[in-house]
Amino acid sequence: MATGGRRGAAAAPLLVAVAALLLGAAGHLYPGEVCPGMDIRNNLTRLHELENCSVIEGHLQILLMFKTRPEDFRDLSFPKLIMITDYLLLFRVYGLESLKDLFPNLTVIRGSRLFFNYALVIFEMVHLKELGLYNLMNITRGSVRIEKNNELCYLATIDWSRILDSVEDNYIVLNKDDNEECGDICPGTAKGKTNCPATVINGQFVERCWTHSHCQKVCPTICKSHGCTAEGLCCHSECLGNCSQPDDPTKCVACRNFYLDGRCVETCPPPYYHFQDWRCVNFSFCQDLHHKCKNSRRQGCHQYVIHNNKCIPECPSGYTMNSSNLLCTPCLGPCPKVCHLLEGEKTIDSVTSAQELRGCTVINGSLIINIRGGNNLAAELEANLGLIEEISGYLKIRRSYALVSLSFFRKLRLIRGETLEIGNYSFYALDNQNLRQLWDWSKHNLTITQGKLFFHYNPKLCLSEIHKMEEVSGTKGRQERNDIALKTNGDQASCENELLKFSYIRTSFDKI
């Protein structure tokens, strides 16, 4: 039985969820670079991206490699990797027998973001014989899940209580170790020597080791999670996991709180800001991140802002960003909400898709409305799209047979046209069989910064309504002859009103 693990408890099935942008060198404390989270699957090609990484700022997932063999891993080693800020997950990587050479110096898994409450997941690794993470000293947050690894031993010899604050939620089941077939031998045991430290858990006094050649490092209890030197002297209180010299914040392997210019500090002093819960960055760093993602459509890219001495992905609820200094300031009234469309555009074809934009005031991208039916549609669209004030790209209304009016965009005031449909149009209306009105132009103002209007096959939309939009939106004169079809717009509506004058002759039985 794995020490510190839980057996036999019912657990939810383990679901495996399925960018080499360097964020800056980590400095003297770390020998390499800070790398983003990685999802490495199918083959070993991307694994080489770990070569210079000291910190993975995010998670590391290595999974679904069915053609790899043990010899493929023999020359692979990433000794610079010290810390993973989120979680480490391995799933069905064939041929991998140990992690001792792959990650010989991995010391800390912070667990800032977890995989279903777990910071370390080893699942269905069919050839893994031992973990071998002999320098792993601290899992700051989260638990361990090690399950269905039929060859995995050296679990009962690990004292997880020396690595985690609590072992109650560890789930370590259905491994070879369960069948008591392992016969784990710690260093020196074969020669009758006791080389590794022994600890007591559940009444068992057991030597602690990761492999037959690597003991588990056990520091004096007084050192807590700070770690200790090879001689057993406690590291500085700002260290986490390990250090090369005692009581020196510049000799830590990793930091308990924050890293700044080669030393570990309790908090980031001005003019620095907390970033990702582990390091200090200056304003320029946060500003660069903001600008890199301002026009990016890459998933996970955030326009970072500053709030409460932190550089964070977005302002919290009730705050909006001051564009001059990136500071989050309290909103006066309802907060603006910028919604970034991942692929640059979004099609609204149902109430469900409209709900995804609920509360958005600025759309960074283009909207395509293609709704053919739905219950209580006008009210639903207004509830979900009615706060949109600005669209950076274009607005396209296409084959939306259920629409009679666009009044559900009740606050839309600006279409920038930074991206144009077919390279020309910022407003595009095609084949809307029941569209009769755009907006009530006596109450609604709309500016279209650039781009043209396109109207074709809107049989109940009168040309007068379209011409009014040209005047109000500032697009009059931009359109070419064929942009607004004269014969297919309003051709099934009563669009022309003329005053009919009647004269009559009164007659009676005795007068003409």
Rank of each mutant, 00 (worst) to 15 (best):
V108L: 06
M321Y: 14
L44G: 04
M83V: 06
Y94F: 06
C315N: 01
P70V: 15
A198Y: 12
F205P: 07
I185Y: 08
T157P: 07
L50C: 02
L155M: 08
L120A: 12
D75E: 10
G333R: 03
P316Y: 04
C228G: 00
D178R: 07
V305N: 08
V121P: 00
D178Y: 10
L233C: 01
C153L: 02
H127N: 03
Y118A: 14
E130T: 05
C255F: 00
G300Q: 05
C182V: 02
C186Y: 02
L60K: 00
R145C: 09
H212A: 13
D72A: 13
K100M: 09
H48T: 11
V218A: 11
K129T: 14
G188E: 03
T45R: 15
T229S: 11
V200K: 03
D261F: 05
C196G: 09
G188Q: 11
P336W: 11
L289F: 06
V253G: 08
L106H: 02
E124R: 06
G95M: 02
D165I: 06
I62M: 08
G188Y: 07
N117C: 04
E57K: 03
F275W: 13
Q287T: 12
I139Q: 01
F205G: 14
F91L: 03
V265Y: 02
R256M: 08
L152R: 01
S54L: 07
K310V: 05
E71P: 13
V265F: 05
E71S: 09
R69F: 14
K294L: 05
Y94P: 14
D169R: 12
C311Q: 02
Y273V: 13
L164A: 09
S143M: 13
S213F: 00
S284N: 12
V305S: 11
D184R: 15
S112E: 13
R69T: 05
Y118R: 02
N43T: 08
L60W: 00
P36G: 15
Y304S: 04
K224L: 11
V34H: 03
Q299D: 09
T68P: 07
A190Q: 15
W210P: 02
H290P: 04
P269N: 01
T199H: 14
P79V: 04
K191A: 06
T157K: 05
D165Q: 06
Q303P: 13
A119W: 01
K294G: 13
P104M: 01
S225R: 08
D39M: 14
N175G: 12
N150Q: 12
F116Q: 02
S296A: 11
V126T: 09
E124V: 02
M65C: 03
I122H: 01
N105A: 05
P187R: 03
N322A: 13
S213E: 12
Y134R: 12
L44Y: 08
G58I: 00
C255D: 00
D86K: 04
L131M: 02
L114Q: 08
P330R: 09
N43R: 07
N325Y: 05
W210V: 06
L131F: 09
F116S: 11
T157R: 13
L47P: 03
D261G: 12
I56F: 00
E51I: 15
L106S: 00
N322T: 04
K148D: 13
D277G: 08
Y273D: 00
P187D: 07
S161M: 14
V281I: 08
Q299S: 03
P197H: 09
R162A: 14
G333A: 02
P271K: 13
N150T: 09
L96K: 01
L152M: 08
K67W: 09
F123N: 07
L131I: 14
S284T: 08
D75A: 04
R46M: 15
C239N: 01
E151I: 01
